[in-house]
Structure formats: structure tokens, C-alpha cells
């Protein structure tokens, strides 16, 4: 297993390189790189700071050298200085990250629980009214624009019924666990919908296939209860292809968080990203993009490890 994980980590490196090159290219294509700033466009900084920036990022050197210097700075956690608050981008991100992790984590968990339930029951009751209802729900969930679903839920549950808070992460001056939970309900539901719909479909078809397999018949023949067969033996095997779909969807989860945070005024990095866009705060934009992409790659690694845990065949083949 250790060798399998090591191999995966090793494979991750070229991917991260590729991402860093694309993002570096975008950074240089943007207006407002340090040289523009020094020429008087953007925030006012002294000539002294200017010279230091040009020196640090090698802005008079050829592009490959600039890239290496930029990458080294990024690896050291230096993502530049916000044009607006004059604070290091990494500091701003670290401040906002917990809110985003809280939102994405709950949405992911919620989506997984609902999708597993829906997928498994649809497969077990294959071609019944429940299955058809599930199929309809999935189509609806995938086609639903996130922001519209958010607006409708906000309108119904927060404005009309008044059951849940309209927006924000907590009530000012409250911040108890229950208060935070209430604030989390709508954004997490909105963000998870699409993934419940997608994953449950994948799990359903994979589950239908697994339930026909010989080992399931064997398990039943041994006299194991249907619950153990379905939720133990079959689900574990049916999850294997679904885990890779879930990993691929992580980038989409981050994209969804950007919109969800904007609708619900959720103080995470997604909302900061949209604000930075309107304020033309380019270092913040690029820093978040780099961090979001890295997050996706790292969680893909986690998915690969889970994959290895679920399926010893894969682990052994690549060890």
C-alpha cells in the first residue's frame, strides 16, 4: 500500500507542474503584473519596493527564469500582495479557507450520503416507481442552474417561511454550533444537489451490475442477510468506479462553491474570488485559482488512495 501511495504522489508532480505553468502564463497575460504596478498603474508603491519586487521575481530576466522564481515564491507560500488591502494573499486565503472547507466539506458529505442512499435503493428496486422517480430527480438536479436553485430556496425558506437565515455564516454575536448549522443548511443543500444527482446515477448502474455478480449470489447462498449483502459486500464493490467520478467532480464542487458563496454571502474564498474580480485584485484571483487547483489535485490523490483501499487488485497491480 505504501508503494502504491508513493507512486500516486509521484504521478501528481507533473500534473502540479502543468497547472503551475498554465497559471503562471495567465499571471503574465494579466494586466497589473508588478512592472505595471511600478509604472504607476494600480496601487501606489515606492520605487524601493518596486525594485525589490522586480529583483525577487526576476522581471528583467527571460520567462523561464521568471517562472522558476515565481514557482519558488509560491512554494514558500508567497502568492503576492493584495492590491487592495496590501496584505499577503496567502494570509487572506488562510483567513477565508475554513469557511470554504466547512461549506464544501458539508456539501460533499451530504451529497455522498444522499447519493449512496438513492443509488443503492434505486438499484435494489430497479425499474420500480422509486427508481423512475430517482431518475427524474437526477435529470432535474443535473440540469438545475445552481444560482437559480439557490435563489428559489432563499425565497421560499428564508424570505417567505422565515425558517432559515437568508445568508451569512453565523448571526453576529451568536456563533453557537446550532446557529452555524442553521446557516449551513441552505448553501450546503444548494451546492450538493448536482452531485447527489450525478453520483446516485453512477452508483445505481454500478450497483445493478455488481448485484448480478457471482460473489453476491455466494454471499446470499451463505445465508447472509440482505442488508449485509447489499450494504456490505455489494456497495463496497459498486463504489469503486463511483469514487473516481466523485474525484473528477471536485473541480466542479469548487466552481459551485464560488457561486453558492456569492448567493449566500458566505465569507469563504469563493466569494473573495468574485469580489477580487470586480476590484481587479489580480494577485488574489491568481492565488485562489492556484490554491483551488492544487486542492483538486490533492483530493484526487486522496481518492486514489481510497480506490486502493477499496480494491486490492488495483493496489497490487501498481505496487
Amino acid at each position: 500500500m505504501a508503494r502504491y501511495v508513493a507512486r500516486r504522489v509521484f504521478q501528481m508532480i507533473p500534473l502540479l507542474f502543468g497547472i503551475s505553468i498554465v497559471i503562471f502564463a495567465l499571471t503574465r497575460a494579466m494586466p497589473g503584473d508588478p512592472r505595471d504596478v511600478c509604472a504607476g498603474r494600480g496601487p501606489h508603491i515606492s520605487q524601493d519596493v518596486c525594485d525589490r519586487l522586480i529583483e525577487r521575481f526576476g522581471l528583467d530576466e527571460p520567462l523561464p527564469v521568471q517562472y522558476v522564481l515565481w514557482l519558488r515564491a509560491a512554494l514558500e507560500g508567497d502568492l503576492g500582495i493584495s492590491y487592495l488591502s496590501y496584505r499577503p494573499v496567502s494570509e487572506l486565503i488562510v483567513e477565508r479557507l475554513p469557511a470554504t472547507v466547512e461549506l464544501m466539506g458539508s456539501a460533499f458529505l451530504l451529497a455522498a450520503i444522499l447519493a449512496f442512499g438513492l443509488g443503492v435503493f434505486s438499484a435494489v428496486r430497479h425499474n420500480t416507481w422509486f427508481d423512475h422517480l430517482g431518475a427524474g430527480f437526477s435529470f432535474l438536479g443535473i440540469a438545475m442552474p445552481v444560482f437559480w436553485f439557490g435563489l428559489i430556496l432563499q425565497m421560499v425558506f428564508a424570505v417567505w417561511l422565515g425558517w432559515l437565515p437568508v445568508s451569512g455564516r453565523m448571526t453576529v454575536g451568536d456563533g453557537s454550533f446550532f446557529d452555524r448549522l442553521l446557516h449551513l443548511v441552505l448553501p450546503a443543500t444548494v451546492l450538493s444537489l448536482r452531485f447527489v444527482a450525478g453520483w446516485s446515477r453512477h452508483l445505481r448502474s454500478s450497483m445493478i451490475e455488481v448485484l448480478r455478480a457471482d460473489f453476491v449470489r455466494t454471499a446470499r447462498a451463505k445465508g447472509l442477510s440482505e442488508r449485509v449483502v447489499v450494504w456490505g459486500h455489494a456497495l463496497r464493490n459498486a463504489l469503486i468506479p463511483v469514487v473516481s467520478v466523485m474525484a473528477l467532480d471536485l473541480a466542479g464542487l469548487f466552481s459551485g462553491a464560488v457561486i453558492t458563496e456569492t448567493i449566500f454571502a458566505w465569507p469563504g474564498i469563493g466569494r473573495m474570488f468574485v469580489q477580487a474580480m470586480f476590484q481587479r485584485d489580480y494577485p488574489v484571483l491568481m492565488g485562489i485559482l492556484l490554491m483551488g487547483s492544487t486542492m483538486v489535485v490533492v483530493f484526487n490523490l486522496v481518492a486514489d488512495v481510497v480506490y486502493g483501499l477499496l480494491d486490492p487488485r488495483i493496489r497490487d497491480r501498481y505496487a
Binding site: L15, L26, M30, F254, S255, I259, M277, G292, S293
Partner: peptide, 19 residues
């Protein structure tokens, strides 16, 4: 293709729309 898959599309589009 893997690289482009890993960069979240919507934020990337937002950046491109900004440029």
C-alpha cells in the same frame, strides 16, 4: 487534458473574462 480538468472551470473563466 488532466491539467485542464484539474483547474476549476468557472474560476478560470472568470479570470479569462477579467483579462
Amino acid at each position: 487534458t488532466d491539467v485542464m480538468y484539474s483547474i476549476p472551470t468557472l474560476p478560470l473563466l472568470i479570470v479569462l473574462a477579467a483579462i
